[in-house]
Structure formats: structure tokens, C-alpha cells
Design a protein around this nucleic acid. Sequence first.
DNA 1: ATCCCGTATGGGATGCTATGGGATAGCATG
DNA 2: CATGCTATCCCATAGCATCCCATACGGGAT
Lengths: 159, 159
Amino acid sequence: MFMGTFTNKVDSKGRVSVPAEFRARLDEEGSAGIICYPSFTDQCLEGGGPRLFDNLQDMIEQMDPYDPLRDAFEVSIIADCQRFLFDTEGRITLTQKLVKHADIDDCITFVGRGDKFQMWNLTCYEDYRYKARQLARENRGLLLRHRPIPKRDREEWNE
Amino acid sequence: MFMGTFTNKVDSKGRVSVPAEFRARLDEEGSAGIICYPSFTDQCLEGGGPRLFDNLQDMIEQMDPYDPLRDAFEVSIIADCQRFLFDTEGRITLTQKLVKHADIDDCITFVGRGDKFQMWNLTCYEDYRYKARQLARENRGLLLRHRPIPKRDREEWNE
DNA sequence: ATCCCGTATGGGATGCTATGGGATAGCATG
DNA sequence: CATGCTATCCCATAGCATCCCATACGGGAT
């Protein structure tokens, strides 16, 4: 479970520390790195561990091999996906392409989103967050209509 | 797993470096080169290791020997298939025919597609990618509808 | 307050990747 | 046989990625 938001600096070599909490979560999954791809819908990157990527891949593999939509997803996810291993200090260095997509400069804001996390330019994120909160406030009534989900394979919190 | 995209230069002798990540993946398969054939559907080349080629061949062999479609596949894939060994620096040099099919000039963009990869002229690929992303974005809901499969024998990511 | 430890950050040193070009060997052609 | 072409091999190099070590900072415990 990725949660919380952290903003870390990008150094002169382009390295950035992945928040320790996220690294711990990835370590549980047996991963010494992240996978990362540009979001379809927003000016940010999405990242996670191998589990996230396997899920995406499985979803793609269930589609008809000749469906042009499958091609579209393959290109948009697999082709734009990058794997980054942590250096000995838990940092990664993104590629130019990804940096460009998210308009990242000297800081990256890591935002936990449950099974994945996002990486934003700080000011872009603040803007996004403001709009999201506003929308949520206007529609808060809808939240109550949803019944709580019985229980899924939810992680236990006592370790 | 071939993923990510890399664009490398074609030098004056026609050589191009295969991305190191792809070479590593091929090396696991025990291959010191690639198999390459023109895509039927797009203006690009498709490549992979011997395993990919075996799969293609099996698929064709399962077809009825008198099915005209079998002939078509055989001619389109097997006949135009070519094997390239890496030189000591991990480069290959394509044949004129293949270069022509993909309209390659001074750069080649290698695009990971899971079990295989593609080789494109950069501007052709950008165009293709743009359209694919657009299609994927419009239909992103479809991807989410597929349930993730519980879990498979997944490769570990710490080496 | 002081100590201790983990996290984030910075920078030198080193190794690897992509790239370029000279040299050599094979092959075809006149 | 001489000549040109091509495919290799081999070496050199620039740029980048990664390792390793040092430092700064903050929180918790003593």
C-alpha cells in the first residue's frame, strides 16, 4: 500500500531518492527497483513494483492479439515503460523522455495511490490536488451512497 | 521481456547498436544475435530471439498445409526472416531490403513489445505512438475491466 | 542536552554503453 | 592477378550510470 506524499530533490546528476516508505513496500514485494510509465490522462508518471506491472500485462494478454486496441495498450504501456533499479542509496535516475512528460525540474513529488504511486512536478501536483479536492467537496454526497466493500485481500496493519 | 524504447544511430557503415537491455534479454535466451522480419501491418521491423522464431514457426506448422493463409504467412515471415549476429560491440547491420521496408535513415528506434521488439524510423514511430496513445486513452476503461490474474511465477527484480 | 541512527543529498572515481574509424580478411569482378 | 567492395575485428573515446564514501539533518531514546 503506497500512501502519503513526499517531495524529494533531483540532484545534478539527475538522481532522486525514492521515499524510504515506498522502498520498504517494494522490498516486501521482492523488488529492488520500480517500474515507471507516463500516465495516460495526467501530466505525471505512474510507478510501482513488479506486481503492478504483471497486472497490467495480464490485462493486456487477455485481449485478442489482433485487436488494434491491444496494440494501443501495448505501445502505451509496455513500450513506454522503464525499469529502474535503486542505486546503493535507494535512488533512481529517470530518462529524459519521462522527465519531459511530467515536466519535472529540480524536485519530484511522490504521491501514494494504493497499489501504485505517482510522480509529479510539485506545482503541477498542487494544481491537480486543488481541483480534485474541489470536485470531491462538490460531490461529497456521492461518497456516502457507496456501501463499504465487504473485505478484500486487504493487508494487515499489525506487523 | 522487452520493454522501453531506445533510439540509436546508424553509422556510416550501416551498423546500429542493439540496446544493452535487449541484448541482456537475448543473452538469457542464449542468443548472440536477433531474428528480424518485416511487420505485415506496420512500416516497421519485428525482432526477437530464437524463441520468438520457434513460436512463429509452430503457429504456422499448426495450420492446414493447404490453407492459402499458411502460404501467406510462410512467405511473409519465414521467407523474409533474417538472422543477425552481434559484432564484438553488440551491433548489427541490417540488409537493404529491411531498411527499405521500415524507411530507416540515420536512426533506429527500438520499441519493446513484450516477447518481441520493433524497429522503427523515429518519426514514423512518433506518429504511430501518438495515435496509439490517443486510442488507449479513449478506451482506457476497457483495460480496467479485465480482472488482474492472482499472481504468476514472476521474475525477481533484484540481481 | 547529547547520542544514535536512518534518510536524503552531494560528489569523486570507476565501469559500461554507444559511437566512430582504422585495419584486416573474404569475396566478387574486371 | 589486381582492384574494389563489404563485413568483420579491434581500438579509442565521450558521455552517462553506478559504486562508494562523506555530510547534513531530524526524530527518538537516553
